[in-house]
């Protein structure tokens, strides 16, 4: 790891000031991706700004009928939260299956979505549940947030403060995970609210995407069988040593069906 100046501000305004002053500043949430990246010398910030001491980024609460999760909420906190389990149990289940127990004790929802890893679990929930990402400057709709592989709509220095999830009637996540990394080879999050169904797929493509054909099919008939007649094109899907694009295309269907079954 290259040397850097470490800062642990106690407020968002202090964090923003430190970031503004730094030659090349980097924000750190849980550090479960950033620290390995630094250790491999793939990044060389002059200043590391740890968001771990900022109280306003913590907490999970119900607010105006929606679920609001602070950006620095750990995966283990989301998984164990009574509020999350009551309002969107599928989201607690997703958090409970990220990485391993030790990663869940450090990793955060804000860090995960800011990183926008194509195989991360949370992006699928953000998109399928039509969440809103709150930052120090504005609110960003889920459909506008993830813009590409490791890319988001966040501007330079823009800090995520919370994610607001509208309550869904039915919601569940199913993933085919890499047994070593526990990242999603393919993950599907399905959510039904009123007559509207949203299906978001992670792991399969360079960035999370909505599978609109499945949304239409499930809107007409909320059952795993509704997926049977659909086909997924392998064009543009990820291919690596773990799975070919064709294999991932098939997994998109299988995981979506499993998610619908899990949602009930």
């Amino acid at each position: 790891m290259y040397s850097f100046d470490y800062h642990k501000p106690a407020s968002l305004s202090d964090a923003a000031a430190l970031l503004g002053k730094a030659e090349e500043g980097k924000l750190m949430a849980g550090g479960q991706t950033l620290i390995p990246t630094l250790k491999q010398r793939l990044a060389r910030p002059t200043d590391l700004i740890d968001l771990g001491a900022i109280a306003e980024l913590k907490g999970i609460k119900e607010e105006g009928g929606a679920l609001v999760i602070g950006a620095m909420a750990r995966h283990a906190d989301v998984a164990a939260s009574d509020v999350v389990k009551r309002m969107i149990p599928g989201l607690a289940d997703l958090a409970d299956n990220i990485g391993d127990a030790q990663v869940r004790n450090r990793g955060t929802i804000g860090g995960s979505i800011a990183n926008s890893d194509p195989a991360a679990d949370y992006p699928s929930a953000i998109v399928a549940l039509n969440a809103t990402v709150h930052t120090v400057k504005r609110t960003i709709a889920a459909d506008a947030f993830f813009t590409g592989m490791f890319e988001t709509a966040l501007e330079e220095g823009e800090i995520i403060t919370a994610i607001r999830f509208p309550r869904a009637e039915k919601a569940a996540y199913a993933k085919f995970r890499n047994p070593a990394s526990r990242y999603a080879v393919v993950g599907a999050f399905v959510a039904r609210t009123g007559g509207s169904v949203r299906v978001a797929i992670t792991g399969a493509a360079p960035s999370v995407f909505r599978w609109t054909e499945a949304e239409a099919a499930l809107s007409a008939n909320w059952s795993a069988a509704a997926i049977d007649g659909l086909s997924v094109k392998a064009d543009g899907l990820n291919a690596d040593i773990h799975a070919s694009a064709d294999y991932r295309a098939n997994l998109v269907k299988v995981m979506t069906k499993r998610a619908v079954l899990a949602a009930g």
Binding site: Q32, D50, R106
Partner: peptide
Amino acid sequence: DTSQCGACVVHVDGRSVKSCTLLAAQAD
């Protein structure tokens, strides 16, 4: 040293973490 193996697990405020993927300053 890549947060895979768990040989470095310790407890920080009672919760298990991989101490190879945490800065000492974070545990201040």
